[in-house]
Structures are given as structure tokens and as C-alpha cells.
Simulated scan of single mutants.
Amino acid sequence: MKMSMLRAIAPATLAFTLVACGGGSAPAGNEAAEHAEEEGHAEEGVVTLSQQQIAEAGIEVVRPTVGGVAGAIEVSATIEGDPQGVQVASAAIGGRLVSLTRNLGQSVSRGDVLAVIESREAATLRGDIEAARARLALAQSNLRREQRLFAERVSPEQDLIAARTAATEANIALRQAQQQLAATGGGGGALNRITVRAPISGQVVARSATLGQTVTADAELFRIANLSTVSIAMSLLPADAGRVRPGSRVEVTAPGRRQEGRVTFVSPILDETTRLVSVIATLDNGANDWRVGETVSASIIVPAGGDTTVAVPSAAVQMIEDKPHVFVRTPTGFKAVPVTLGRRNGGQVVVTAGLNGTEQIASTNSFTLKAELGKGEAEHED
């Protein structure tokens, strides 16, 4: 009786065990699959780049504009050189030009020799130095002799004082003669020659000197311009100028070029003739993209006070699967974040959802990140 009961229970126990094991293995497999899906989802939209790779790709990282964009003041503007960046190299004394080392368009560094002038006045100045040097040597010799005689109680103290005074005056006369020659640009390898040197680093934009020409003192020979930074001159209506502050962003555009600058000056005085307000902005010109005198279009971005709207540069928005995205900086690169866009103002577009304004985003060359993202997805599918 007992043996028959055991035989009946054993199959039931085995079946229960198998069912239990099978029931336990299915959830475990589902959890692993779900975990794998979560890991794949976490990597979606991510582009891994080092800081060096970001710099080499020319990707600029900026923060979104918080405060909204009330509009843009569109005006015509003119490129002007920095007043401190244009200087003249002139002859300090008259003479004949015997050497010219630079021509139009050539770059120079501060202190470079631009020209050599042969002058009788230079010879006179050098002669004055030699005479002053000889007088100083004689005065110092007399001083040593008087010091020795005074120590031997042969010469009175009054003679020693006179010799010391004469030596001091001779030393002053020598320094004065040397400074007079230095003020003319003394040098050039000969007694009667002086040099004209570049007052600043930059580029030769004008040259009025001709080899062999006789020039007068203070005659302009070269004009040197450092145009690594240029100014944008604008004229605004008083009502518009009241909305502009130093530091406001200015987008400057010309055929094939676009660059951003900053307002540095808003005049508190109206122009007497035009009754407009002068506004100056600065623009980096390290690549020599902008020329002095060129007419360009300027768009002054005016923020809206009391607003917390987030705006990004239009170049920062990339369409991925027909949806707008912005690439947000991460510790290892960038992540494509979907956003909802609002109105556009100048080169800015309002983001109504997706960003809070505290992120760092890729602005220029963000299309390279889109391309990298496409490559990564294609490799993943393979």
C-alpha cells in the first residue's frame, strides 16, 4: 500500500519541479532581454569624441541664450579698422632713402627695419656722441687724479668737487646725445645713416616711399595696420539704440560670410547731421575675412527682458529622422537631444521644449556630429 502511494506521488513531484524550473527561467530570460534593450537605448544618439577631436572638427561649444529673443535690429554697417591698430612709420630727420625692406601687403613685426635713411644730420648727431664720450673720458680721468691728490693732501677739496661735477655733467651730455640719436632711429651700419622701424606688428597697407627719394623730417613712409580685430560702425534710430547695450550680440553677414561680434560702444550723443546714434561693435578678423571700408549687413540681437525663453543658434539644430535635435555636450562627447522649436529671429531659434538653458551645446559644425551619429547607427545595424 505504501509503495503504491510513493509511486503515485513521485511523478507529480517531478512534474511540479519541472514546472517550477521552467517558470523561473522564463522571467530571468525576459529580464536579461529587457536589460539589454535598456543598455542599447542608453547609447542611442550618443557620439563619443575626445576634446582634441572636438577641436580638430572645429566644433564650438556654447550655452543657449536664456531670456528670449525679442527681435533683431537689421542695419547696414561698414567695416572700419581699429584706431589703435593703424600707425604711421615716418622719418624722424630728413635725408635720402638708401634702402626699403618692405612692400605693400607684407607682414611686419614691431621693431622690424622698414627703411634706411642717409643723412648729414645723422652724421652730426653721431659726431656729438663721440665728442661727448671723449669729454666724459677726460672728466673721469681728471676726477681720478683729483681724488688721488686729495687723498695725498696735495689738492684742496674744492678742486675735487669741481672735478666730480665736471664728470657728472659730461656723463649727462653723453646720455643726452645718445638719446637724440635714438629718437631718430639711429642705426643702419654707417655713421651717417638711421633706420625707420615698424611701430607695431601688422601688415603694410600703404607705402609712399621710393628708393633714392629725399624725404623731409616727419614724412610718412609706410602705414602699418593690425587688422586682427576690426570695428563695425552702425547708425541707429534713438528708439532702437535704447534697446542696445554694450555686449549685445551682432551677426555680421556678407556674400559667403557670416560671423558674430559684440557691441562695445553705444554713443550717448546724437549725430548733429543725421540725428542717429553711433554704435560700434568689434569683430575678430584673425582669418582676414573682412576688409576695411566694406559694407556689410548687421543684425543686432535684442533680448527680451523678464523672459526665460531658451534660444540657440540656428546652426546648432540638426534634423534627425525628420525631427529637430540639438547636440548636448557630455563628459565623453555629445548626445542628440530632441527639441521643439518656436520662432526664429536672425540667426537664433527659440527652443520651447527639450532644453533648460544650462546645457552646453554644439553650435558651429554640428552637422559633423550628425554625420558621425549616422555612421555609428549604420555600423550597429550591420
Rank of each mutant, 00 (worst) to 15 (best):
D307S: 08
Q259E: 15
P313V: 04
D240P: 11
L237V: 12
R245I: 06
L236G: 02
I301Y: 10
D240N: 14
S297V: 11
W290S: 01
I300V: 13
S314F: 15
A254P: 08
A254C: 07
I269G: 07
S235Q: 15
P255Y: 08
T264A: 10
G306I: 04
T282S: 11
E294A: 00
G261M: 02
G306L: 04
A239F: 13
V252I: 05
S267C: 00
P303S: 06
I301L: 08
S299M: 10
G247H: 01
A239H: 13
A281G: 08
T295A: 10
L237I: 10
A281V: 08
W290E: 00
V292I: 06
V312T: 05
P313A: 03
R258Y: 09
L283M: 00
D240T: 11
A287G: 09
T308S: 13
V244Q: 00
R262C: 07
T295G: 08
P238M: 02
E251Q: 13
R275E: 06
T282P: 08
P255S: 03
A254L: 08
G242W: 11
S278L: 09
V252D: 00
D289I: 04
N288K: 13
Q259K: 10
D289V: 05
A239I: 14
P246M: 02
V277N: 01
V296E: 00
A304H: 15
A298M: 08
V244Y: 06
I269W: 14
T273Y: 14
V244C: 02
D289H: 09
T273R: 14
P246Q: 03
A239D: 13
A281C: 05
R291G: 10
V250E: 04
S235H: 15
R291S: 14
L283C: 00
D240R: 09
P255G: 01
L276K: 08
T253D: 01
R243K: 12
N288L: 13
V263G: 04
G256T: 06
T308R: 12
S267E: 00
T253C: 02
V302E: 05
G242F: 09
E272K: 13
D284T: 07
I232C: 06
A298L: 07
T295V: 13
T264M: 11
T308I: 10
S235G: 12
V244W: 06
R275Y: 10
V250N: 03
I280W: 12
S299Q: 14
P246K: 02
T274S: 09
G261S: 01
I280P: 07
G293M: 02
E251Y: 14
E251P: 10
L270K: 04
A311L: 06
E260V: 15
A239K: 14
G256S: 00
G306C: 00
I301V: 15
